[in-house]
Design a protein around this nucleic acid. Sequence first.
DNA 1: ACTCAATATCTGCCAGAGCAATGAAAGCCC
DNA 2: GGGCTTTCATTGCTCTGGCAGATATTGAGT
Lengths: 154, 154
Amino acid sequence: MSIYDSDNYEPSRSVAYLVGQVRTELLAALDRELTACKHVVDIGVTAAQFVVISRLASAERKKSASDLCREMSYDAGAMTRMIDRLESKGLVRRARCPQDRRLVYLEMTEQGRAVYPRLRELSMSIQNRFLRGFSRADARQLESLLGRMLENAA
Amino acid sequence: MSIYDSDNYEPSRSVAYLVGQVRTELLAALDRELTACKHVVDIGVTAAQFVVISRLASAERKKSASDLCREMSYDAGAMTRMIDRLESKGLVRRARCPQDRRLVYLEMTEQGRAVYPRLRELSMSIQNRFLRGFSRADARQLESLLGRMLENAA
DNA sequence: ACTCAATATCTGCCAGAGCAATGAAAGCCC
DNA sequence: GGGCTTTCATTGCTCTGGCAGATATTGAGT
C-alpha cells in the first residue's frame, strides 16, 4: 500500500519536504543561539561542528575519523575538512595511531571539553522549544516514525 | 512540560538528529535515482534543483525569485546561483518584469516542462519506499507532527 | 523634485557535503 | 618476500546555503 500516488502527490507538501524544512529551521535556530551566546561566540562553533563534537564527547572509547563517518554516514572528505576547522579552533586534536598508522584518532582538547556542556544545553533547549505542545507520547511517536524511515533507507 | 532534560538528553538520539539523518538519506536516494535514470542523466538535475523546479511547475501564477525565497525560506543569494545553474541547463528562463524592473520572473522552458513529470514520479516512489510499512494514518501523523514543529519555529 | 526607506537581485566570502582520484599503510595469499 | 586487495585519510572539483555588502529600482513622504 503506497502512501502517495500520482494523483494526490504534491512535492512541496510531502514528508520529505517537511523534513527538509524542519532540519533547516533547527539548524538556523541553533546557529542563531550559538552566535548570540556570548560565552561561545569567540569560539564560533556552528551547528554542524556541534554534531561532530557531541559524538566525540559522548563516546565511550577513542574514535577514529572513519569511525565517525560510519556512525553518521558522513562523507570522509567532508570529515577531513571538518576536523581541520575544529582543530584550528582548538576544540579537537588529531592523534595518529601508532599501531595502525592509517588511522587518525580524534581527541577533544581541554577547551573542547569545557565548551561542550554549554553546547549540549543549548541544543536541548532549542529542541524543547520546537517540541512545545508535544506530549511525551507525541515525541516518542515522532522518534519512532523517523526511525522507521531510516530503517527503510538501508 | 519539556521533552528533554539534562539527564536523559543524548544529542545523537534526539529528534533533531533523526530529522537530519532522514533528510540526508532522502536526498542521497533521490540523487542516486537521478543519476541512474538514463533519461535524466544527460540533464543532470540534482535533488536541490528538483525542489525548485517542482515549486515552479506546480505554481498557479508567475513567480519571481523572491516569491520562491519567501515560500521556501530560502536564501536570496543561494537562489540567484541556483537559477544560474537551472538556466544554464536550459530548464528555466529569467524574464525581467517590465512593470517592476527589480523583479525577475521565472518561467519553465519546454525542456523543463518535459522533464518534470518524470522527476515527480521519481521523488514520489522514493518517498513511498521510505514510508514502507506505514499506514496512511502513520503518514498523516508524521506530517502533522513535523508541521507542528515548523509552527513552533516561527 | 528630492530624500529616504524598502525591496529585489546580485556578488563575494565562508562553511558544508558528496564524489572521484591519489597515496599511504595494513592484511592476505601464494 | 612479492603481489593483490582493502582500508584510511587526504585533496580537487562541484553544488549547496547563509550572511553581508553593493547596486538598482520602486514608492512614500515632504
